[in-house]
């Protein structure tokens, strides 16, 4: 990144952005003590893969689309890669595959629809996006309005600029799409034994759904049956305890609450389990309204 000022500048214009489109990298690490969440790509593996395909550093900031693809007019030539969920990407109306190095020309338009086989799609550019960098991370964090594009979500009309970098890999490097997995591995949390016997079985036998009341801070899970509400013998804790991305809490309502990337760092409900680190990316690709099943690691 030496002499970044001398590198060629690229530009793109956002024509349409979904309601939750932002710039993310692999997160703001080491500040959780001060209740500053890590943030970062919800599917970190897909984000770093997008960079790997272009020969970028894996922590290079990327564009994260949620639920629906952004429509982008490239105002400079660029090499890009598209990973994560599948919004049926198009360039000037022509279908384009994900997980490969794509050349896009000045004036061409990248677009797509509703994201399927996942919930979040990533766009990496062979360059370093101009971002607001806070504590070594470009990840946008909504509550504090820091990081990303001027501390804001990406919206229609925004112009993003990037500094071109030399790729270190062959330009035809491709990768297989990541699998979509909705059976999520759990490990027992500190208060697992607060769950009554029925709730312990419900946790792994029942099917839960991602509630529409979910965001980058946390996901609420709902079910059709009364037994989908879990019951703890001690519904709330006497003192505040630590929570972190991937942990499952059971509030008095019995509806599981999963803390995610932008989530708080302390809470007061029993922490019954946590998502295995290798499966948090998969969990975050499950769309609102879609089913999730848990598998408890012995």
């Amino acid at each position: 990144m030496d002499n970044i000022e001398n590198t060629k500048l690229g530009k793109l214009k956002i024509i349409k952005a979904g309601s939750l489109c932002s710039i993310q990298d692999l997160g703001r690490k080491g500040w959780a003590f001060y209740a500053i969440p890590q943030s970062g790509a919800m599917d970190s593996k897909s984000a770093s893969l997008a960079n790997e395909i272009l020969g970028n550093p894996e922590n290079n900031p990327v564009i994260e689309c949620t639920g629906i693809a952004a429509t982008i007019e490239f105002q400079s030539d660029a090499s890009i890669s598209l990973t994560g969920g599948d919004p049926s990407w198009l360039i000037d109306g022509q279908p384009i595959s994900r997980y490969k190095n794509i050349t896009i020309k000045k004036g061409q338009i990248l677009s797509g629809g509703k994201i399927t086989h996942g919930f979040r799609s990533y766009i990496a550019i062979n360059g370093i996006l101009e971002t607001q960098e806070i504590y070594g991370s470009s990840s946008f964090y909504l509550n504090a309005n820091i990081g990303g594009h001027n501390g804001q979500l990406i919206k229609a009309g925004d112009v993003l600029k990037w500094h071109e970098i030399q790729s270190t890999k062959a330009t035809n490097f491709t990768n297989k799409p990541r699998p979509f997995i909705s059976k999520i591995k759990l490990k027992k949390g500190p208060e697992f034994d607060f769950l009554d016997t029925q709730s312990k079985s419900a946790l792994t036998e029942n099917v839960f759904y991602i509630s529409k009341d979910s965001n980058r801070m946390g996901a609420r899970l709902e079910g059709d049956k009364l037994s989908d509400r879990l019951h703890c013998t001690q519904p709330s804790l006497l003192n505040s305890v630590v929570v972190f991305p991937g942990i499952l809490q059971v509030p008095p309502s019995g509806q599981i609450l999963v803390i995610l990337q932008d989530g708080q760092t302390t809470g007061g409900y029993p922490r019954i389990a946590y998502i295995d680190a290798s499966h948090l990316d998969f969990f975050n690709q499950i769309a609102i309204g879609r089913a999730v099943k848990f598998q408890l690691k012995k």
Binding site: K29, G30, A32, F33, Q38, N239, S240, V241, V242, F244, T265, T266
Partner: peptide, 14 residues
Amino acid sequence: IEEVIATETEIYLK
């Protein structure tokens, strides 16, 4: 250690 979070009753070490 990647992260430290402390409350009045526990310390978490990632």
